[in-house]
Design a protein around this nucleic acid. Structure first.
Lengths: 220, 220
DNA sequence: CTAGCCATTTTTGAATTCAAATTGGATCGT
DNA sequence: ACGATCCAATTTGAATTCAAAAATGGCTAG
């Protein structure tokens, strides 16, 4: 197994919650689960610690990082900034074909909204946002965006969505597509910022913070 | 030596150019220079690779990453986005005392401009930008900014500055301080974007890209 | 019966060891 | 003499081993 693969596997376990936030990570167990020795696993853990997904405690091993309300706010704020930037750049660089792809995804998303199919709605939603990032043609930006969104994804897609919020989100997405088609970079960046701000308010209000998960439930 | 210390030492060597861009990194040599074994060094290299400072070649070791023109453009663009975001947030959160610090640094910077003391000018310049980032009160943002600026720092501060450009930069900094004192977030973010765009044009025009460093000069 | 202390065990951190891949050079063939 | 191929030596990647730190459990004393 390649180094990057180990990092990817462990990252997925953290993001999927297979290793829950705050849980200790016993190297030995993970090693045999992944069928590797401790050396490559420890390399991966250090990389993930630098990404903010893992917390290293000197001489006491590592834990899955836990997001506080503040962390969540900070991540959303940065995400807002990155998407706004991506929106501006995308309007300068996106091709007609790419706009067409986004329009298709948007149409599909609106259909799923009509069906109240939240899962498929989110799939299209995510595709659209990622397409805008990709259209910015800036790998540094893409990398940071990927890293930031990965950490808030669960919160973003698990928070219950009220009919009121959902309708607003769809409306905002109409504006997003519109600005993109007009290649109105400044307009798009404003809409994206507002869109993310609303999403953040939604998530923060739901109080998703990964606080105090109790070290471990102990069977008595 | 602690893990983070190893990462820091090697990062410094890369950023200072002690290990020049494109140079191969012989693990063995670095190990004895740092007085550690290969295991912790390799952990550090993988972390630095994730940061984009080191390029890992499977089964062929690692090299100090080399920035192309495109990389430089991408990094500056992201930096622009981050500073713009920080500017907006800072205007909401900065204290009067912090504004006062920035004003002092600005005054000192203008004096150094008058003396044509580029080194001291840059010191104040950097302090101001970092103070704005810090005032945003967002550690995620600070971390990304630190990582991005570190990679372009040499280009940013080594590019020769024409009198024309320098005067413009000082003028822009006047506007930056002014917007900050008025707590005009939108205005500040616009000025910062323009400021960074000009800096980027300056650097890109100077053609700083770290291209073709010749594998190694060979004494015949 | 509880609290505090010490020995044991477990787990982490790092050096060493071992295997695999690559590189450079030498030999052989054309 | 030139080129291809094979072998040795170096270097990388990962497992194992060793040492140090922390957690655990038991023991004794109050």
């Amino acid at each position: 197994m390649l180094h990057e693969e180990v990092v990817g596997r462990v990252r997925a376990m953290l993001l999927d919650g297979e290793i829950p936030p705050g849980a200790r990570i016993p190297e030995r167990d993970l090693c045999e689960k992944l069928q590797i020795s401790r050396t490559p696993l420890r390399e991966a853990l250090k990389v993930l610690a630098a990404e903010g997904l893992v917390q290293l405690l000197p001489n006491r091993g590592s834990r899955a990082a836990r997001l506080t309300d503040k962390d969540m706010r900070d991540l959303f704020e940065v995400c807002q900034g990155l998407e706004a930037l991506a929106g501006e750049l995308a309007c300068e660089r996106i091709t007609d074909a790419e706009i067409s792809d986004v329009a298709d995804a948007h149409a599909a998303m609106v259909r799923h909204y009509g069906d109240r199919d939240l899962l498929q709605y989110y799939r299209c939603n995510r595709f659209i946002h990622e397409a805008i990032i990709a259209a910015a043609g800036n790998p540094v930006l893409s990398g940071l965006y990927e890293s930031v969104t990965a950490r808030i994804r669960r919160a973003r897609y698990v928070t219950p969505m009220t009919p009121r919020r959902w309708a607003l989100a769809v409306q905002e997405h109409e504006a997003i597509l519109n600005a993109l088609q007009r290649r109105d970079g400044v307009g798009l960046s404003h809409i994206l910022r507002a869109h993310l701000r609303h999403k953040r308010e939604e998530v923060m209000q739901a109080g998703f913070a990964e606080t105090a998960p109790l070290e471990q439930a102990r069977a008595s």
